[in-house]
Amino acid sequence: MMQVLVHTDNHIQGDDRLTELVQESVTDTLERYQDRITRVEVFLADENSREKFGDEDKRCVMEVRLRGRKPVSVRHHDATVKAAFHGAAEKMLHLLEKTLGRLDHRHDPVVAPE
């Protein structure tokens, strides 16, 4: 079973609702690879909290731990926490498709043309 952990900095309100939404979204987005993932960690932060301005000051870092492989991670900055999270989730999905697709392709039996 894939474990999803959500971390926030002191400037992002990391309540149960946010945690539940992130966990559900990660599970839905990465469902295809859930048997190959042991843990997903999502880090949400507000980089310009003191200034209270900036177009893309919300950051999401997503790290996925794959069975028998080194962890992979992505980062996305955006104007809102939600947009930063969704951007990171999309990047992670593409990274997993690329990484695991290569691995699967290597292990496919080679069929000689007739």
Rank of each mutant, 00 (worst) to 15 (best):
G87M: 01
E114A: 12
A79D: 11
V111P: 03
M2T: 04
L93T: 09
A45W: 02
K70R: 11
K98L: 13
S49V: 10
E51P: 07
I37S: 06
C60R: 02
H7F: 14
L44Q: 12
C60F: 00
H86M: 12
K91H: 11
D35A: 10
E41R: 13
V61T: 14
F53L: 11
K70C: 04
E20D: 01
N10L: 11
K52Y: 15
F43R: 12
Q23E: 08
K91E: 13
H77Q: 14
H7E: 12
D78A: 12
V6E: 07
D35Q: 09
R65I: 13
L93E: 14
V40T: 07
V40D: 06
T8P: 01
R39N: 09
I12Q: 03
R59H: 07
D55L: 09
T27P: 03
L95E: 13
R106K: 12
V110D: 02
R67C: 03
L100E: 00
L30Q: 01
R32M: 06
G87I: 00
P113E: 11
R59A: 03
E114P: 13
A79Y: 03
V61R: 13
V4N: 08
V26Q: 02
L96C: 02
I12E: 02
A45V: 04
G87S: 03
G54S: 07
L95K: 15
D104H: 06
L30I: 01
V26H: 02
F85T: 10
A89W: 10
H76L: 01
E63F: 04
L95P: 08
L100H: 00
P113N: 14
L96F: 01
